[in-house]
Design a protein around this nucleic acid. Structure first.
Length: 270
DNA sequence: ACCCAGGCATTGG
DNA sequence: CCAATGCATGGG
């Protein structure tokens, strides 16, 4: 089975916890100790191996997607060095050693995922999203491909409401799919400009834009200051603070810091 | 039967 | 500019 090397350190179990923590994610499916995802119409199985992961089947064209999905772009060594100056992060980087936050390979999937997670619990969000995937995506062997933007653009809002979307969110998702926004163009823009463009779209607020920066673009300084779970994690680890300004404490590693705090609060406790 | 959960747009002061 | 409100589901 072909080995795909990953930058070290890397811990597969911790890094994929997000795909198991809130119920089934049909597009990033945990199955018999491995992660399954459909790439270019083919289902890949990814499992841990020394120095990286085993991927079956692996073609050259798929490597960039898998590397992104597994968080390879993050500079963990630099972050771990930075973390030594902060007692909380020093502890978390030890407990979660090798944790690379997964990045979404698909901008539409990332935005829809965030929209489904607005306001409601992650369990509720995953359940609704899985029904959407089963209704509008394509099944492979175990996992499903996430519905394409084109497929949702031709859907009726009422079809999404039947899956448990609020009428408002159904409208957001369909109008996003039908919008003129060019996701690839956003890659070239600085963080603030990306946020300005995204927030101009109906249903995308600052929180959703921040998570897009963090989990699709992998921008090091993304800090989802409006996130309730992150607020609670910061309060429990650091005590009551001025939360929005708290991100500057982690400059320039806000994204990784946020992920370590959130995952730490779930897996390690505080 | 409640209440809360990794928001957002809308309305009204 | 800030406060109040409705939204739909899953878990406690």
């Amino acid at each position: 089975m072909p080995l795909l090397k990953l930058p070290q350190p890397y811990d597969f179990e911790v890094s994929t916890e997000r795909f198991r923590a809130f119920g089934v994610d049909r597009a990033n499916l945990w199955h018999e100790g491995g992660l399954h995802r459909v790439v270019e119409g083919r289902e890949l199985r990814i499992e841990p191996a020394p120095g990286g992961v085993l991927v079956e089947p692996l073609t050259n064209g798929d490597s960039p997607v898998v590397l992104t999905l597994l968080g390879a772009p993050f500079d963990l060594p630099a972050f771990y060095h930075f973390a030594q100056a902060d007692p909380v992060l020093a502890c978390l980087t030890r407990d979660l050693a090798g944790f690379r936050p997964p990045l979404s390979p698909d901008p539409f999937e990332a935005l829809v995922g965030s929209i489904t997670a607005q306001q409601v619990s992650m369990f509720a969000a995953f359940a609704v999203r899985s029904r959407m995937i089963e209704r509008f995506g394509d099944p492979a062997e175990h996992a499903w491909s996430f519905p394409t933007r084109e497929r949702i653009a031709s859907a009726r809002e009422e079809e999404l409401v039947e899956l448990g979307f609020s009428r408002r969110k159904a409208e957001y998702v369909v109008s996003l799919a039908r919008s003129e926004l060019d996701f690839e163009e956003l890659r070239e823009l600085p963080d603030e400009e990306v946020k300005v463009r995204l927030v101009a779209i109906r249903g995308i607020g600052e929180w959703t834009a921040d998570w897009f920066l963090a989990r699709y673009l992998g921008r090091p300084r993304a800090w989802p200051a409006g996130d309730l779970a992150l607020q609670k994690a910061v309060v429990s680890y650091y005590g009551a603070q001025d939360f929005r300004a708290f991100g500057t404490r982690f400059e320039p590693f806000q994204n990784l810091s946020a992920h370590y705090l959130l995952t730490g609060a779930r897996m390690v406790g505080s």
